[in-house]
């Protein structure tokens, strides 16, 4: 890693750390200090869970091909946080978790155990399922469509790494009249989620479940840190663009005169 990349990486990490720590302390004293915009997908999750409990049918949450130990580690942790928030509200009902990366299995098991801490009887060994991905993850999509029908799932939260095969899963959910919330870090999957899911999670919205569905000040601080970094990045891009076009613009103006 060259020195410029080292410096920038260190700066970003330190900045995120400082903002998160400061904002967390501030939010602990004044919760309404940093209001967050509404994300319809998170607003609709309690309704989905309510429908699932009333119908006596399980909720389905899928990580897709997100797993630990690779590029998608942070995404897997974020999906696990969303799983915890959904499962902890669904303690009266049951939850089925699916993943195509086996490294997500222990995380999913651990998250469900924590979420169902007071209702361990609702948890079973088949609550977490691994379906192999195959070369194009289509085998995983086919397995999920079968599982959604066999288990008579009430609602689906598909938050992780999905590609275009998400279209098969969402089409099956619609045919079976199952609600769906979907989001993916893969651009193909995101486009499919936007077009076909009842509610979509776009981009970094996948990573903020903890802030939107709990009162955690540290989670809220993470969202503010994300916003600060985003605005700094925008500022950096604008300054770099202005610097790049300064000479041609000045030359054009001088030529015009």
């Amino acid at each position: 890693m060259d020195s410029t990349t080292q410096t920038i990486t260190t700066l970003i990490i330190v900045l995120a750390l400082v903002v998160m720590v400061l904002v967390t302390q501030f939010i602990r004293r004044r919760k309404e200090a940093f209001p967050m915009r509404m994300i319809p997908a998170y607003e609709s999750i309690p309704l989905l869970i309510g429908e699932s409990i009333e119908a006596g049918r399980p909720m389905h949450i899928s990580f897709g091909s997100a797993g630990l130990g690779g590029n998608n580690t942070a995404l897997t942790l974020a999906s696990a946080e969303l799983l915890y928030q959904v499962a902890s509200r669904n303690q009266v009902g049951s939850t089925v978790v699916t993943a195509s990366d086996p490294s997500a299995l222990p995380l999913a098991y651990g998250t469900l155990r924590r979420a169902y801490a007071s209702r361990r009887d609702r948890l079973s060994a088949s609550s977490v399922r691994w379906y192999p991905a195959g070369t194009r993850s289509l085998a995983f999509a086919a397995a999920l469509t079968g599982m959604m029908g066999d288990e008579r799932v009430s609602g689906n939260v598909l938050a992780g790494s999905f590609g275009p095969e998400l279209a098969l899963i969402l089409e099956a959910a619609t045919r079976k009249r199952q609600s769906s919330i979907a989001g993916s870090v893969d651009l193909d999957g995101q486009a499919v989620a936007y077009a076909m899911a009842d509610q979509a999670l776009i981009g970094e919205e996948l990573f903020v479940a903890g802030a939107y569905m709990s009162d955690s000040a540290s989670q809220h601080g993470s969202v503010v840190a994300l916003d600060v970094l985003r605005w700094l990045l925008i500022l950096g891009i604008l300054i770099a663009t202005a610097n790049a076009i300064r000479e041609p613009v000045l030359a054009a103006l001088r030529g015009g005169k």
């Binding site: 970003i12 990490i13 995120a16 750390l17 998160m20 942070a74 995404l75 942790l77 974020a78 981009g203 970094e204 996948l206 990573f207 903020v208 540290s218 993470s222 840190a225 994300l226 970094l229 985003r230 990045l233």
Partner: peptide, 9 residues
């Protein structure tokens, strides 16, 4: 950016 923030967490 969200990945970085999650990593810092």
């Amino acid at each position: 950016l969200a990945t970085v923030v999650t990593g810092v967490r």
